[in-house]
Amino acid sequence: MAMTDCTAHSTQFSRPAARGFSIVKMIDVWRSRRALAQLDSTRLDDIGLSVKRAAAEEAKPIWDVPATWRD
Rank of each mutant, 00 (worst) to 15 (best):
R15C: 09
R15H: 08
R15T: 09
P16D: 15
A18I: 02
A18F: 12
R19F: 04
R19M: 04
R19L: 05
R19G: 07
F21N: 13
F21M: 14
S22G: 00
S22L: 02
S22M: 02
S22N: 03
I23H: 10
I23K: 08
I23L: 13
I23C: 08
V24Y: 10
V24I: 11
M26I: 07
M26E: 08
I27R: 14
I27S: 13
V29C: 05
V29E: 00
V29D: 01
R31K: 06
R34S: 08
R34C: 04
A35R: 13
A35E: 11
L36R: 02
L36M: 05
A37C: 12
Q38D: 12
L39F: 03
D40R: 05
D40H: 04
D40K: 05
S41L: 01
S41Y: 03
S41M: 02
S41V: 04
T42C: 11
T42G: 10
R43A: 11
R43M: 11
L44A: 00
D45I: 06
D45N: 05
D46I: 03
L49C: 03
S50P: 11
S50N: 09
S50E: 11
S50G: 11
S50Y: 08
V51H: 14
V51P: 15
K52M: 07
K52C: 07
K52S: 14
R53Y: 12
R53K: 12
A54I: 01
A54P: 05
A54R: 06
A55Y: 00
A56K: 07
A56M: 04
E57A: 12
E57L: 15
E57M: 14
E58V: 10
E58Y: 06
E58K: 14
E58F: 04
A59K: 08
A59P: 01
K60W: 00
K60F: 00
P61R: 09
I62C: 14
W63R: 13
P66H: 01
P66Q: 01
A67F: 07
A67P: 02
W69V: 05
W69L: 12
R70T: 09
R70W: 05
